[in-house]
């Protein structure tokens, strides 16, 4: 464990808790893409298949349970909570997210470290996580206004992946044969997707204006 990875995990934890707290407190999911939340629930479900077979550490297991619990809770709130679901804008959140799942699954079937069920599902979860934010970014561009909690959510998600890149650089130089090309490439692609959001997020923060994404 290094400071970059711990900071990354804490930032990731903060992103899901900020979102869950927002939805639970104000009983609204305005501006939140259900599609992205469903993709994230699938990412965690396919990545943490080893939660019962491989015990790594208490930290690792607790964090996996929190990520699984929070992502499925967020999906439940938006789909089934009698108040929250009324604020879900299904006419705007129209990204066909199965068009993201299929290529990720195909790629995982061809590009992986070893051809076992768990490894292919794990690789699928990496590819899917890289693109899972797209429905949310599309929704933000459509609705144009970003309430600051949704903006914070996207910002924290991007920051977590950015910190992981520093973690991989650190581990590459400190641990012999720590090489995981698939993880690195998927992580860099994911971070790049946030790059333009970060630019507009900082611009609005610097000029102290409401964050407006270009159409």
């Amino acid at each position: 464990m290094n400071i970059f990875r711990l900071a990354g995990d804490m930032t990731h934890l903060a992103s899901v808790l900020v979102l869950l707290l927002k939805i639970h407190t104000i009983k609204s999911c305005a501006g939140v893409s259900l599609k992205t939340q469903e993709l994230y629930a699938l990412v965690f479900a396919t990545r943490y298949l080893d939660i019962v077979t491989d015990f790594i550490s208490v930290y690792n297991t607790v964090m996996k349970l929190i990520f699984l619990g929070s992502s499925f809770s967020i999906v439940w709130y938006i789909r089934h909570h009698r108040v929250v679901r009324r604020s879900y804008d299904k006419d705007q959140d129209t990204f066909r997210h199965y068009l993201l799942m299929i290529p990720c699954m195909l790629l995982a079937l061809f590009v992986h470290e070893k051809f076992t069920f768990k490894e292919v599902m794990w690789t699928f979860s990496l590819y899917l996580e890289a693109v899972a934010i797209l429905p949310q970014l599309v929704l933000l561009q459509r609705t144009r206004n970003i309430d600051n909690l949704t903006g914070q959510y996207v910002f924290l998600l991007g920051a977590y992946r950015g910190l992981y890149i520093f973690n991989w650089i650190y581990r590459y130089f400190t641990e012999p044969h720590f090489v995981h090309w698939i993880t690195w490439i998927a992580g860099v692609v994911q971070t790049l997707l946030y790059a333009d959001f970060f630019y507009y997020y900082f611009e609005s923060w610097k000029n102290n204006v409401r964050l407006q994404l270009p159409a």
């Binding site: 990875r5 995990d9 990731h12 790594i56 990520f67 794990w122 992981y164």
Partner: peptide, 10 residues
């Protein structure tokens, strides 16, 4: 050798 944990990251 210790059981090297390949997947130790979240």
């Amino acid at each position: 050798s210790i059981h090297e944990h390949e997947k130790d990251e979240l």
